[in-house]
């Protein structure tokens, strides 16, 4: 199973309104992506909490349909 970059960006933006999402398909197989998510709501959250917020927006697909998502999260400067 694989996912398209657009679907991932859409889901993250739906779950984290106003987030900026930069995504890169690492291997062109729809299964290995790197994403950088910049979101106001990350302020004051630990890295683990920030990543969990992104995984929740992906509604359970992380680890199933989506094998690998190298994730980087930050709040806007």
């Amino acid at each position: 199973m694989a996912m398209s970059a657009d679907t991932i960006v859409e889901l993250i933006k739906e779950g984290l309104p106003g987030a900026e999402v930069r995504i890169e398909d690492l291997r062109g197989d729809g299964d290995h992506y790197a994403a950088h998510v910049i979101y106001e709501g990350f302020v004051g959250k630990s890295r683990v909490q920030q990543h969990q917020m992104v995984y929740k927006s992906l509604k359970g697909r992380m680890g199933d349909e989506l094998h690998a998502l190298a994730l980087q999260t930050s709040a806007p400067e």
Binding site: R47, H51, Y55, A70
Partner: peptide
């Protein structure tokens, strides 16, 4: 946390590979 590996230090979850 939906993926493996998972690292714990002194009983506390630290993160997966990225973190």
């Amino acid at each position: 946390w939906p993926t493996i590996p998972q690292l714990y230090v002194k009983g506390e979850f630290v993160g997966g590979c990225d973190i």
